[in-house]
């Protein structure tokens, strides 16, 4: 076993906190993939990963929110069963869900920028409703655009068919998730931390 004999390069205090939060939000997004509600218009249930993507952007900001969701993808590729329905591995990243998965870090970073701007992080509970909802709507647009494109390329079908099969039955629920995310941000319980 090779032993590292260089002097120890400690991770700075602020970064330790951010690494821990990024890892926990990645794990939370993975756990959300298992929380599913029946979908009245499709046999595939609605799961909450996208809520995890929104919340990572809102609570961790553009940089660490994006990093957290990128970590979600890496951990899933390395074998953690955290993609939709407990899937894992490189397969889903190259499969029809690929477009959706690759869009998540971008969406989280965008939500982060919309909520916090590019300088310092703010308290999400004090951010205006317009910014919160606008950021999440923007994130949703990015997720479904890249997701539909990915599905269309991987499955070799037209964009319309791709949208009908992969996205149409899920779009209405994004509005519910956005409303719920606003509720999470505004609730005293989350703000207490």
């Amino acid at each position: 076993m090779a032993t590292n004999t260089d002097s120890v390069e400690l991770v700075g205090d602020a970064v330790v906190g951010n690494v821990a939060r990024a890892a926990l939000f990645a794990a939370l997004t993975g756990a959300f993939a298992f929380v599913s509600f029946p979908n009245p218009i499709s046999p595939v249930p609605v799961s909450l990963q996208v809520l995890g993507v929104f919340l990572a952007g809102i609570f961790l900001g553009p940089v660490w929110g994006g990093a957290s969701i990128a970590l979600y993808l890496v951990a899933g590729a390395a074998g953690a069963p955290i993609f939709a329905g407990g899937q894992a591995g490189l397969g889903p990243l190259f499969g029809y869900t690929g477009g959706f998965l690759w869009s998540y870090p971008v969406a989280a970073a965008l939500v982060g920028v919309a909520v916090h701007g590019t300088s310092e992080l703010r308290d999400p509970a004090e951010v205006g409703l317009g910014r919160l909802v606008g950021g999440m709507v923007l994130g949703t647009v990015v997720i479904y655009t890249l997701g539909t494109l990915g599905f269309s390329i991987v499955q070799d079908v037209g964009l319309v068919e791709a949208f009908v099969v992969s996205a149409l039955a899920f779009v209405p629920f994004e509005a519910v998730k956005i409303a719920a995310a606003v509720g999470v941000v505004r609730s005293d319980a989350a703000a207490a931390e």
Binding site: L48, L51, G52, A180, V184, A190
Partner: peptide
């Protein structure tokens, strides 16, 4: 229902990450 699960999730994630 989503709000309740989401709030609890965020609270647990922050407590555990601290």
């Amino acid at each position: 229902r989503i709000r309740i699960v989401g709030t609890a999730g965020v609270r647990r994630a922050f407590a555990r990450s601290d």
